[in-house]
Every structure is written in C-alpha cells, then in structure tokens.
C-alpha cells in the first residue's frame, strides 16, 4: 500500500477525482454526504437523480436542508407533479420558506417534463423537484441542458429499477433505509467511484 501511495505521488499520473470539472455545490447539510460529493454538495446547474424503492424512508428529508437554504436565500422551489401533498407544517419545521414554494400539477403527462424544463431554464427556481417513472434518456437530457442554462438544481426522483437505464444526470444516488438512517449509494458522480455511506438523518447541521 505504501508503494501505491508513493506511486500516486508521481506527477505524471492523473487521477479521476482531480480531472473532474467541479460544479459549484450547495451543501447538503450532512457533512458525511458533502464529503463524497464533487464540489462539496449538491451540484448546481445540473440534474441529480435519487433512486428509491419504497417511499417514506427519508428520501425527501435528504434534500430538505439544501432546499431550506435555497428558499432562505429567496430562490423559488418548484415541485412538478408531486405524488402527494407537500405538507405545509412539516415544510415549515424543515425551515422551508413557504412563499417560495410553487406546486405545478399539469393535467397531462407530457406537460410534466415541459414544466420541469421551463422551471430549470427560467433561472429564478434554484430548486426543481420532479418525479419520473419510465422517462427516456433523451427527454431527461433536455432537463440536464435546461439546468445548465438556468443554473438551478434539478432533483429527479425515480424508482430503483431505473438504475439500469442510461441517464444524463451528473449525480445519481440510490437510497435505502438502514438502521434508523439512510444508506446512500453513489451510482454516478464526476470523479471516481466511492463506497456507500450511512447517513443519520437527524445529524443534519442547523442552517
């Protein structure tokens, strides 16, 4: 191991970690998670995918501290076709500023990605949450481009079986419940692969 360490000091060797162009990050509020994300947080101006099997394990709580920070800074948060009602008392408890929340419920499915794209592109919504089932990569690619244009943070919730599908998102996580907390697997990030981490959801740092 010592030999490998010495070898890696060789300036002729480039490591994946360093080459990755880092997007500015929004701190996740969980130091353990920040440590493994390139840019030290959720990537701004890009799409983040969160894959989960069962709702109710804390998949929303994972993004709450960062959303709270964005809303406190006066940025809009757009929720495109959420599966249930985002409950105002709980949002307030997570320090989300309610006036910054915009819920969009298009009647037709095809308008959902359109609305998400508009939200990401407009630049005033710095956090955009969307839920997708079997969306194809081509249409998600448009979201990624729109996020790059508007500089916002796109969060796409997808079922776990979508892990096998190609995705344009720069960051893909899958989460599962483990021992009172969340086990976070990084499926894709800019840089080299990292081991899954265990996250205690109550360990978030206060804003």
């Amino acid at each position: 191991m010592g030999n490998v360490g010495a070898l890696l000091q060789n300036p002729a060797i480039w490591r994946g970690d360093r080459c990755a162009r880092q997007l500015p990050g929004i701190s996740t509020g969980f130091p353990a998670l920040d440590a493994i994300l390139p840019g030290g947080g959720w990537p701004q101006g890009a799409l983040t995918e969160i894959l989960f099997e069962q709702e109710g394990i804390g998949e929303l709580q994972l993004v709450m501290p960062a959303l709270a920070r964005l809303s406190a800074a006066g940025h809009g948060l757009a929720w495109i076709a959420p599966p249930h009602v985002p409950y105002a008392p709980a949002l307030t408890a997570f320090h989300i500023r309610l006036p910054r929340i915009l819920i969009v419920r298009p009647k037709e499915d095809r308008d959902r990605l359109w609305a998400a794209e508009q939200a990401l592109r407009c630049g005033a919504c710095k956090g955009v949450l969307a839920w997708a089932d079997g969306e194809d990569g081509q249409r998600l690619r448009r979201l990624q481009l729109a996020a790059g244009e508007g500089g916002g943070w796109g969060i796409l919730y997808r079922p776990l079986h979508a892990a096998d599908m190609p995705s344009p998102a720069v960051l893909r996580l899958s989460v599962e419940r483990a021992g009172g907390g969340l086990k976070v697997h990084v499926l894709k990030r800019r840089g080299s692969a990292v081991a899954p981490i265990h996250l205690d959801l109550s360990s978030r740092v206060p804003n």
Binding site: G56, L60, P83, H84, L91, T92, A93, R97, L98
Partner: peptide, 11 residues
C-alpha cells in the same frame, strides 16, 4: 407561515 411541528410528515 405558521410554526410547524417536527412530528408531521412531509407528504
């Protein structure tokens, strides 16, 4: 905005 409670669910 009204004070919320930690014991309430997000959905």
């Amino acid at each position: 905005e009204l004070p919320g409670g930690e014991s309430r669910p997000l959905w």
